[in-house]
């Protein structure tokens, strides 16, 4: 009986963890779907967001909510600038260039963060309660993160479904030539999508800093898994990424439950590799 309760707890934690991963995957997929460029440095944007929240709160003593809003806008601006300054000049050149420039940005941001903030682990020093529910312990910060991530995804969904700009974002990922005939300026949509992708990374940062210490290499913890989720769901496929996030988080959580936390990641990565052999286009991919 006790065993079952722990299992249920692990499953619930897996679901909660999946929410934040789904949010990050959505941001990365959004940029990829629209601009057709993979931001290898996406998790480093999250790191920048975490540092801005930490700094605003700890150094300048700003209220946490204000710091979060600032972080979202700051990382959105960063996303905008990455597209404007780095991606735009290489659009239309061989795809390897995308890897090189966004990979370069990854190391640049990591090194800059080490220079500015040293390699120390830092946290907000928050002590959020742990909820006890039928003998299960659920961390309140995880619950907040999950609910916020879901709300953000619903908001994004509404935006994509209900607005002209949202329709243009969906349309451009299907036919980037023909949208021009309808009066869409692709360069502007690229900038909007990049800023949105940045904003989602900023929000992801706010949710992760509730649970994790920030340090210059924090991106390693979330970058590869986010990328794998996107590939597993079919790159650019937002619904696929959403589902894949929960599959991966559940594997990590259950692997951690039956073995050890590290094994959870090993199992998830092995699952990913096997799936790539079986379905290289991703679970829900239809692009070639």
């Amino acid at each position: 009986m006790i065993f079952d309760i722990f299992l249920v707890e692990a499953i619930i934690n897996g679901i909660l963890f999946g929410g934040v991963l789904a949010l990050l995957a959505l941001g990365l997929n959004l940029v990829f779907g629209v601009v057709d460029v993979v931001w290898i440095c996406y998790a480093e944007l999250v790191m920048v967001g975490m540092y801005s929240i930490y700094w605003g709160n700890n150094h300048f003593g700003l209220p946490l909510v204000i710091c979060v809003v600032i972080a979202i806008f700051a990382v959105a601006l960063l996303g905008f600038l990455i597209h404007f300054l780095v991606i735009r000049p290489i659009l239309g050149t061989p795809p390897i260039n995308q890897l090189l420039v966004t990979g370069g940005l990854l190391f640049f941001m990591q090194s800059l963060a080490t220079l500015l903030f040293t390699g120390d682990f830092r946290n907000l020093g928050l002590h959020l309660p742990v909820l006890e529910l039928a003998e299960m312990y659920i961390s309140f910060s995880r619950l907040i993160a999950f609910v916020t991530a879901l709300l953000a995804m619903v908001a994004l969904y509404m935006f994509l479904k209900r607005t002209y700009l949202g329709a243009a974002i969906r349309a451009i990922s299907q036919d980037r030539e023909v949208v021009v005939l309808m009066g869409v300026n692709p360069q502007r949509v690229y900038l909007v999508a990049s800023a949105l992708g940045g904003g989602l990374a900023g929000l992801g940062a706010a949710l992760l800093i509730l649970q994790y210490d920030v340090h210059p290499l924090i991106g390693i913890s979330f970058g590869p898994i986010t990328f794998m989720i996107c590939v597993l769901g079919g790159l650019g496929n937002m619904i696929g990424g959403f589902i894949a996030a929960f599959v991966m988080s559940q594997l990590i959580s259950l692997g951690g439950f039956f073995l050890e936390t590290e094994w959870g990641y090993v199992i998830a990565f092995v699952f990913f590799i096997i799936m790539m052999f079986i379905r290289p286009q991703g679970l829900f991919g239809n692009r070639s």
């Binding site: 002209y164 969906r170 299907q174």
Partner: peptide, 19 residues
């Protein structure tokens, strides 16, 4: 034709009124 294949008829028409 070049419709947006995974969007609904209505969304395709909406794109026509984008400007």
């Amino acid at each position: 034709r070049r419709l947006f294949p995974s969007m609904s008829i209505e969304d395709n028409l909406r794109m026509g009124a984008f400007t």
